[in-house]
């Protein structure tokens, strides 16, 4: 039971981490809370439905969702955030919340208010012992998340672009003054963050076999909890916090039972964290 819940927690946590990464990347360079990012996640899920149902190809669904969402992310940066850069942080935050609500209604209008199913089947074999059972799809989620995170890690640590990205996240102005085109770096953050959210959107839609207009609401606030928990702007912190939240949610089912609503746990953990270490797991006071 416990081992099974740990396994479930890792699957869930991987998804939280993937969704929250976009927030972390954007916050890292712009210090903006990109709440509408959860709207990008839902867009990814819908693109997944539109591509998967006729083609039956999960790979194609994921790639199309990533491409569409990258563009959507870039457009949001260009038209929502860039015009208000340098304004007090409340301004982009309110714009972002407004955009998120707009997107939810837009999906409702265009795709209808009802749940669409995304009946993904994959050929990968599951994994089963006496203590734990993971479906092939669960294994796929964890593997895909691990692959994406490793890729991102390599990009950040092993390439010139990654060096420029880290410098920009530490001091955007000084990076710009040293020949780094920070517009490109910011664009890259939106593209990568949105593409990863799109992948998560398709995977979540397939995991629960449902896609609906408001499926981004709960991930939106959990992602906020995850990035605060991880220490605003820290990529490894986000991954650890995502996994920790997934595990906390599944393990409380074991030890506390279901009388505690699962979705409240994110905020319980968050409040505890803020009391103990306000800068988050890997955050640094600046």
């Amino acid at each position: 039971m416990v081992v099974q819940q740990i396994a479930n927690g890792v699957v869930l946590g991987s998804l939280y981490a993937l969704v929250a990464l976009g927030l972390t990347l954007v916050y890292g360079v712009l210090r903006i809370l990109h709440v509408a990012h959860a709207g990008v996640f839902v867009l990814g899920a819908y693109v997944g439905v539109l591509v998967y149902l006729p083609t039956g190809s999960l790979a194609l669904a994921i790639v199309s969702a990533a491409v569409v969402c990258s563009l959507a992310g870039l457009i949001m940066y260009r038209f929502l955030y860039r015009p208000v850069l340098g304004r007090p942080p409340l301004v982009p935050l309110i714009i972002s919340i407004g955009a998120f609500m707009f997107l939810e209604d837009l999906y409702r209008l265009v795709m209808g208010p009802y749940i669409k199913s995304l009946p993904v089947t994959i050929r990968a074999a599951g994994f089963e012992t006496a203590a734990v059972r993971l479906t092939g799809y669960q294994l796929f989620i964890v593997a895909a998340a691990a692959g994406l995170l490793l890729g991102l890690w390599w990009l950040m640590r092993g390439t010139r672009l990654g060096l420029a990205w880290r410098a920009s996240a530490q001091d955007l102005e000084t990076a710009a003054a040293h020949g780094i085109n920070t517009d490109v770096i910011i664009g890259v953050c939106f593209v990568i963050g949105s593409a990863i959210a799109a992948v998560a959107g398709v995977m979540v839609g397939g995991y629960y076999n449902q896609v609906y207009p408001s499926m981004g609401s709960v991930p939106a606030y959990k992602a906020l909890a995850v990035i605060v928990l991880g220490g605003m702007g820290s990529v490894p912190g986000t991954v650890i916090a995502g996994l920790a939240l997934g595990l906390a949610e599944t393990l409380t089912m074991v030890w506390v039972g279901t009388f505690l609503p699962r979705d409240a746990i994110a905020f319980l953990v968050l409040i505890l964290m803020l009391l103990v270490k306000p800068t988050g797991l890997l955050g640094r006071a600046s």
């Binding site: 010139r160 060096l163 420029a164 410098a167 990076a175 040293h178 020949g179 780094i180």
Partner: peptide, 8 residues
């Protein structure tokens, strides 16, 4: 220092 020389 590599950032200093980034654009070169």
């Amino acid at each position: 220092l590599r950032i200093g020389a980034y654009a070169r």
